[in-house]
Amino acid sequence: MTSTLNSPTRRRKKFTPRQRAALSRGVQYGILLVVAVIIALTADWQRISSNLFNVEVALRMLPQLPSAALNTIIYTLFAFALGLALGIILALMRLSSVALYRWIATLWIEFFRGIPALLVVFTVGFAVPIAFGVRIDSITAKAAIALGIVSSAYIAETIRAGIQAVPAGQIEAARSLGMSPTRTMLTVTLPQAFRIVLPPMTNELILLTKDTSLVYLLGLSASAYDLTKVGRDALNSGTGGLTGLFVVGAAYLCITIPLGFLARWLERRTGGGSR
């Protein structure tokens, strides 16, 4: 309707849309530049280089990083494997027709989602051995059990949502071909649910990677050091200030960022969900 375009009540614009977009971009870059300049001028570069990023201390840490990173990855993978297995079982329990199963699963999920992971690590490391007289020697096993239990609560909810997001028509098609409910769950529902939950599942994995920093609570021998433990030791060594933390922080990013890329690649390859 051309009449509205020419209507006198319409506020006159000083710029064309393209000019406005350019202006908006210019302002945003300007803000960024001002912030950067303020930081550069107010920061004490001398103190930063000795206390926050001390190259000498960083280099001294370097040889310890590969095995520490490997340990971090191992703790993560074992915990994730357990968390995934428990998570699937809990998700199926949540959707079970047996009310008791639903209650147990809900209780488990609410409990372990609600308490700090630190408490669980302590409990598995010290309280359980005392209470039940079982001794778990392997740090990996202890870490996997504690963190696996914690992540199972989150993973269960993610998988449950994924299962419920599978289109009803897929399940009806499977049932109409004579597949039993269990068969349908295994061949149709779960495989499709996993596609749907791939992105949130990557988040779980990344969160878990960072949660492995709690294993120092279990008391580690040098060969079992994870990244955070290496960072803490560097922190306590007297020189370099906070350098240790920044170095392991970078090491964590080297693990978690590729995970994000991997997830995006998998998502693209599987076509992202069911449709």
Partner: peptide
């Protein structure tokens, strides 16, 4: 008994 649906419902995976 075979069944064919309006929305096809092929297994997408």
């Amino acid at each position: 008994v075979g069944m064919v649906f309006q929305q096809f419902n092929l297994f997408s995976h």
